[in-house]
Every structure is written in C-alpha cells, then in structure tokens.
Amino acid sequence: MNQEHDRVLETAAAWLAAGHGVALATVVRTWGSAPRPAGSQLAVREDQAFIGSVSGGCVEGAVIAEALDAIGDGKPRLLTFGVSNEQAWAVGLACGGQIEIFVERID
C-alpha cells in the first residue's frame, strides 16, 4: 500500500540483526477520521528509538510505552485510542477518530 511499510519492516529487521529488542505496532482498525489507515506501522527499539507512525503523533508516546512493555514481557497487546476513551484526556486523537493498535514483540 505504501512504501513506508517496507522501511519500517526493514529497519526492524536491521535492529534485530544488531541484537536489539524490537516491537512492532500496527493500526488494525479505524473509526471516523483517523489520521493513519489500517496497516500503518511503527517499529520500536528497546532504547526507545522508533520509526514509522500509527497516528501522526497523537498517541505515539503511549504506543511506544506499551511497545517497551511488550519487549519486556513478550505479550501481544491490543490498544484502543479515541475521544470516547478515558485515556483521551491524556493521549486522545484531536481529529475525533478512534484507532485500534496491535503491539507485538518480534522474537
């Protein structure tokens, strides 16, 4: 769908090859006017370096924190962000949309 996909996966592979812990976050569902379509990805390295995007900046901080936890415990996570969510006060989407994001460690 877009060339960004390649870069995120390739960067994740390069980080793994260099011995880093890596998690991948993927937008799996959107409602309303979400900033990035399903399939958008963000790769996170255990030292908090990241590449790609899942929201254009609105929820990246929260997603990176969950990704770091996933690198730690190996458990996949399904996160939802949106204005109707309690977390919206902290990390909601300004556009009023909602997104669901899957976070997994790459083993």
């Binding site: 769908m1 996909h5 993927t26 799996v28 569902r29 379509p37 399903a38 399939g39 669901e100």
Partner: peptide, 18 residues
C-alpha cells in the same frame, strides 16, 4: 488494497496488505 481486521471462525486476524 485495504488492510483490515477480519473474524474467521471466531478468531480475529489482521490482514496487512502489501
């Protein structure tokens, strides 16, 4: 050309299209 979440036999999958 649409990546999407689907339910198959009660299991949720995400299909990322490249």
């Amino acid at each position: 050309d649409a990546s999407q979440r689907v339910e198959i036999d009660g299991v949720s999958w995400f299909l990322n299209v490249f």
